[in-house]
Write a protein that binds this DNA or RNA. Sequence first.
DNA 1: ATGGCCATGTAAGATGTTACATGATTTA
DNA 2: TAAATCATGTAACATCTTACATGGCCAT
Lengths: 187, 187
Amino acid sequence: MAKKLSELEGVALGLVYKHQPCTSYAVRHELEQSPSTRWRGSSGSIYPLLRRLEERGLVESTPDEKDGRGRQLLAVTAAGVEALRAWVVAGCEPDIVAAVSDPVRSRLYFLELLSDAALSQFIAETESALKQYLTTTREHLTGREESADPLEHLANLGAVYQAEARVRWLEAVRRALKLGEAAGRED
Amino acid sequence: MAKKLSELEGVALGLVYKHQPCTSYAVRHELEQSPSTRWRGSSGSIYPLLRRLEERGLVESTPDEKDGRGRQLLAVTAAGVEALRAWVVAGCEPDIVAAVSDPVRSRLYFLELLSDAALSQFIAETESALKQYLTTTREHLTGREESADPLEHLANLGAVYQAEARVRWLEAVRRALKLGEAAGRED
DNA sequence: ATGGCCATGTAAGATGTTACATGATTTA
DNA sequence: TAAATCATGTAACATCTTACATGGCCAT
């Protein structure tokens, strides 16, 4: 029984699967551009990670005939598909389901440290940043309505749902703290 | 200008602040019991982390007079309060606001790997696990309505909002994939 | 007195980031 | 042709987990 894939390994292997045959750079670039900043997609993580996957027989690389530099093109092996499947279905496990985190929420516990003025400013700026983030995720959703596959659309929909919930939550926080509304800025 | 606190450093320092004077174990234990599984609160992370904070002058320890073992009690220094404040207000920065992650959503991109039967099962089990998680977060919210401080209540409210959004999202996913409703099990 | 929890810690390993280095290709 | 971007990689470092070790306290 092969070792379980970590979160980033699962995502990276899945990206190889979706784009195969593709270069390592394609995987890295998509992670780098992703609106979520959970992973930076730094070269120091992705290239070693993909090599590990190849050593474990989950990915195989073949030289690109049409490329003078002889760059390697990656593809997922049969064992890789199995590992990816196992990683996906593990998503229903309580540990995985509960492994969400929100750095804004983490900070909320400690707002008593702030003066009234700093508190007002913090809530207003965070609300604005959250709304901006919501706009970005919405654009990701609608910007590729027909082109993308339905699963990508549904995943993006989840990001929008969560972003909306976070905005509503922060509005509730502002009301509970009896602070004024954010000045203008309905972007 | 001191180095910024990492996420776990901020949370740990905040917990020391809330409970001070307290032992390292109290911090570790609260992280371990926390419903979010982002961090395990393992001893291998917490004890070295708190020592680092002490070396940086953000935390100070004094021996507990009333304890035969001479255990150390931790407290946040003035510099520690400043660092914690800076960490909190950084929560409005776009990078931090966008640093949310949902391991279920990550997996959704790759559901095409599953057979129809496996897909149905996955959605049903994940929906059930998500509802269970929502129940747990709700209990955290109502189980301590009066006792807890208002900020903890508001933070827990955020967890509930997000969990509700995730449940609604997965219901939408199920409908979009034209799958049947989860069999029974309204726990 | 002993088994279980309280409390603290270390060592080894996995994994991610930053910063740097390199060369090829495309674009202005 | 110069600058930007594509593409790949390494080294040093930071941080987190797992697994193990240790010793005190407390209830039966």
